[in-house]
């Protein structure tokens, strides 16, 4: 297990390097001059030139890359070209709001999807209750296909504008979490519930479920002790991917709800060509996804005695 952890950490470092390089390359491939964008079209050419030199933007690309790596290693993310604030501070101000949103949505998606998927599998096993199965698969397909921002706008229209039950935007109190969390969780919950159902249906056909029935265990134990743990392997893997996808979803949902997180910041920074901030946030997103994948792999290795991940 220790060797697995070390190997996995080594892979994480390689992925991290790829993410860092991609974040650097991406910014420099986008056309446009960040200094000109920050200072405005009327700024004198000398000022722009002086600022470019101060930021090191006139150096050759490889030198900029090395400087960038050096700064990252020393914990120096640079400063916003727009506000002059250190990027590290911008990120530390905004990150908690995004993490709260993503985690709350993930927990909600799991709390909805696992019991729902399991219950639907039990109810519709062996071709029982066809109408219920059809209703579930159609409804979940529609919900899974709806883009987050559309769900978000729909929720705002119904629950904030029309009914006035929840705030339209912002992060001001517990009730301000309700709509963004639902908007972000509903798609992943639908996808996961479908996966849990299909996995559980497959497991219910397995011989060891027949053995469990032959042991005359109560249904509750058959489903919770034998079916669910065996159905969850794929769910954990996909759950990790979905949590990674939730991070992308936060960008859209945060913008709809003016949520003061990284997502709304990255969009405004891209529009303002505030490269250091964009670079820093892209890096944080990348690291977030890598960490989630790491946690999922470790969880699989720990939870599933059959898992071959340890050997891979």
């Amino acid at each position: 297990m220790h060797r697995f952890a070390i190997r996995r950490a080594g892979r994480l470092l390689v992925s991290l390097w790829v993410v860092i390089t991609a974040a650097f390359g991406m910014i420099h491939l986008i056309p446009g001059d960040p200094v000109r964008a920050a200072l405005g079209p009327t700024a004198p050419a000398e000022l722009v030139q002086a600022r470019r030199a101060a930021l090191g933007l006139d150096d050759p690309l490889w030198l900029q890359y090395l400087n960038y790596l050096h700064h990252l290693v020393t914990g120096e993310f640079g400063s916003s070209t727009l506000s002059g604030l250190p990027v590290a501070q911008v990120i530390s101000d905004r990150l908690p709001a995004t993490i709260e949103l993503a985690l709350a949505s993930f927990v909600l998606a799991i709390l909805i999807s696992v019991p729902l998927g399991l219950a639907m599998a039990v109810a519709t096993r062996n071709g029982r209750r066809r109408p219920a199965e059809l209703a579930f698969t159609s409804a979940s397909a529609v919900l899974a296909a709806l883009p987050e921002f559309l769900v978000a706008v729909g929720l705002v229209y119904v629950f904030s504008v029309t009914l006035g039950w929840a705030p339209v935007a912002g992060r001001s109190g517990p009730d301000s979490y309700v709509l963004p969390v639902i908007a972000l969780a509903i798609g992943p919950a639908a996808v996961l519930a479908r996966i849990v159902r299909v996995e559980t249906l497959a497991v219910l056909q397995a011989d060891y479920i027949r053995t469990a029935r032959a042991k005359r265990l109560p249904s509750r134990l058959i489903y919770l002790r034998h079916a669910l743990p065996n159905a969850l392997t794929a769910t954990i893997t996909l759950g990790g991917l979905i949590l990674g996808g939730l991070i992308a979803g936060t960008v859209l949902v945060e913008n709809v709800f003016a949520w003061p997180g990284l997502g709304s910041t990255i969009v405004s920074s891209i529009l303002a060509k505030d490269y250091p901030v964009v670079q820093g946030i892209v890096l944080i997103y990348g690291i977030g996804v890598l960490l989630i994948n790491l946690v999922v792999d470790i969880a699989l290795a720990l939870l599933d005695p059959r898992s071959t991940i340890r050997k891979s």
């Binding site: 397995a206 011989d207 060891y208 027949r210 053995t211 469990a212 032959a214 042991k215 265990l217 002790r225 034998h226 743990p229 065996n230 599933d304 005695p305 059959r306």
Partner: peptide, 24 residues
């Protein structure tokens, strides 16, 4: 009680042999 044909699939892969017997 019944013993099934396929010993490879009739035992829960996530349960130790002892737990599987104890449960019965």
């Amino acid at each position: 009680q019944m013993v099934f044909q396929d010993p490879y699939s009739s035992l829960d892969p996530r349960m130790t042999v002892g737990a599987s017997i104890a449960e019965a």
